[in-house]
Design a binder for these strands. Structure first.
Lengths: 217, 217
DNA sequence: TTTCAAAAGCATCCAGTGGATACTTTAGAA
DNA sequence: TTCTAAAGTATCCACTGGATGCTTTTGAAA
């Protein structure tokens, strides 16, 4: 069975090819038997970080449940299977997106000086990046334990809360307990607000409310 | 092109048929050209409520994100497309499951007498039915507004909270605000506990903690 | 400088999903 | 008794995440 050489395995499938041609009119000039590379070089060069950026953008736009690997691959001009060279599976990609978002959040919280300030910054980040915040809080806890980069990013956020909310508390267990009470109100409040259940007060009013709830701790 | 009559449209597809035979050895006695009905009667008779029960069981077992229509259809012995005669789409089925769960929860909360009692019953229900609780709280708020049965079921739960937590409050806006503060802590606390973030105190300890947080309201 | 293994690409395949279409059976009202 | 509408059915479609086996390219060892 004679087969012509083709860059990267078999010649492309008819159906997908027709769609590719429709999307890339330039292929019309190249003749039907010519490969239509998505890119000048065979190697992407920067695929991992490019994919991460694209995935982050897509998650922010449409939510992590909608995200498909093919969508990400298309965005960076690569076959969907190529992503598996850099991420074990879809979940691993989402974990990486979440880790990046936690890192960004931690960088913001480092600059917080008071409980009210922390609350305001945390709430503003969550509401300005709702889909990302949903992704961050949806990563299964068991998964995190086996994902050092993600765990480290989360830890940075928690460390800032400790610094701000637990200055006077000695016992580590008590410190952790106090932080968790803070997160209960933050997470509950943001979730209900984002879901539209809270009669839509202003962001400012929400922050004031949650600050007050956390004041006594 | 001659075609033999077949119950319900075209003769079955080769591949799926082979699998069906493998699952139902009784078909071996019926000859290859005989229809192998999944059920004695053509009409199911009770499909809507049977599908609802099966879907509820499957969601409770594996979570609503895993639920597939084919799984539900198989469980009640019906073609997956038949479910569309009773539910507009997958989301509508999930909405119905959620409405049923809210109704069950409301029936429990009617018997609550004090804030602590309400909190305990609510938390116990949520933790005993975690996957269902996740489904209930994940229904988009906008969807609820256009789904009267679901909205009514949710309203029953809120009405009980009003009765218990807002006896002394006059202003409707203030009553609603107070209830929302209660839900912020309940939802936040249950979510973090279920996610395994809270160092796993006992259910009893969680209830005590959340009751205390809601005491001052 | 050449060789060659491993990393990073690729087309294709596969089983599964939600939904669409066009068909048949059957209950029950006219 | 007839006949319509509701409730079944098989099949089709586009799409998904993941598996396989191929090819190109890089860069270090020889």
């Amino acid at each position: 069975m004679p087969r012509i050489a083709w860059p990267g395995g078999h010649p492309p499938d008819r159906k997908r090819r027709r769609r590719a041609v429709a999307l890339h009119p330039v292929a019309l000039y190249e003749g039907i038997m010519t490969a239509t590379p998505r890119r000048a070089t065979y190697r992407h060069g920067n695929l991992k970080s490019a994919a991460l950026k694209a995935a982050t953008r897509l998650v922010a736009a449409s939510g992590h449940e909608q995200l498909s690997l093919r969508e990400v691959a298309d965005a960076v001009g690569v076959a969907h299977r190529s992503l598996y060279n850099h991420f074990a599976d879809r979940e691993a990609l989402l974990d990486a997106v979440a880790a990046g978002a936690y890192t960004r959040l931690a960088a913001i919280l480092v600059k917080a000086g008071t409980p009210g300030d922390y609350t305001a910054k945390y709430v503003r980040f969550a509401l300005a990046n709702r889909a990302l915040y949903t992704l961050m809080t949806s990563r299964p806890h068991a998964t995190m334990k086996h994902n050092p980069p993600l765990q480290a990013a989360v830890h940075k956020v928690i460390a800032q809360a400790m610094r701000i909310f637990c200055q006077d508390i000695e016992s580590p267990a008590e410190r952790r307990r106090a932080v968790m009470k803070v997160y209960i109100t933050l997470y509950g409040g943001i979730s209900l607000y984002a879901a539209g259940v809270l009669d839509q007060p202003s962001e400012r009013a929400l922050i004031a409310e949650l600050s007050a709830m956390n004041a006594g701790m």
